[in-house]
Amino acid sequence: MRVTILYFASLREAVGIDRESCDLPADIDSTSRLRAWLRARGGAWATALAEGRNVRAAVDRRMTKVDASFADGAEVAFFPPVTGG
């Protein structure tokens, strides 16, 4: 399936891009699987998305809790914990 992936704040700086469009293998259908798939790129991706890192995700502009599935055409975002206000 094809998804748009967005990166924000320190995570955006670490991976060097703010968005990309990806054709994902069929089994990459949730935020935790996608995170692992991106981590496998190695380098900055492996560090920024390392398992111990506190990285939040949103699917179609809704904050997700632990793991969330998504469908073809979804907009998935990864970012550090928010600090507004």
């Binding site: 924000f8 704040a9 320190s10 949103a58 904050m63 975002a77 970012f79 550090p80 928010v82 600090t83 507004g84 206000g85």
Partner: peptide
């Protein structure tokens, strides 16, 4: 807003 709104400083 502090915990849920996607802002970063």
């Amino acid at each position: 807003l502090k915990t849920d709104a996607p802002f970063w400083k």
